[in-house]
């Protein structure tokens, strides 16, 4: 599965498209991590726990989107966009969406 965020896949031509595919997730870290992040906030710097949370969430959203595309019979997803929402407090909500296509 090829995933890009441009209109095409360089070097290949799109023969069919199947419409939109999307993947999303909502993930949280446990209370201890939240507490440590609160402490880290005093001195600043990278919040490792939250960086990890965000990359886990991004992975999962992408993987779910790709799963949807695979079930449609696509072999690539083009023009992928990431977006976030913030419904839950202290949780990462990511979603990814793009156009499922077949390339040759």
């Amino acid at each position: 599965m090829i995933v890009t965020n441009v209109e095409t896949i360089p070097g290949k031509s799109i023969i069919e498209h199947y419409g939109i595919v999307q993947g999303s997730t909502v993930r949280a870290k446990h209370l201890g991590r939240d507490f440590m992040a609160g402490l880290k906030n005093l001195v600043g710097g990278e919040l490792k726990g939250y960086t990890e949370l965000l990359s886990e969430a991004r992975e999962e959203a992408l993987q779910r989107m790709v799963e949807q595309a695979r079930q449609m019979g696509a072999n690539a997803v083009v023009n992928v966009r990431f977006a976030t929402s913030s419904v839950a407090q202290g949780a990462a909500e990511l979603f990814a969406y793009g156009t499922a296509v077949k390339v040759e």
Binding site: Q22, S24, T25, V26, R27, A28, K29, H30, L31, R33, D34, E60, S85, V87, A88, Q89, G90, A91, E93, F95
Partner: peptide
């Protein structure tokens, strides 16, 4: 879920439905 961490499954359907 916020206390223990992990996937907040109860919100997944909410954002999915909305989208």
């Amino acid at each position: 879920r916020n206390i223990f961490g992990g996937r907040v499954a109860s919100y997944e359907s909410l954002v999915d439905r909305a989208r």
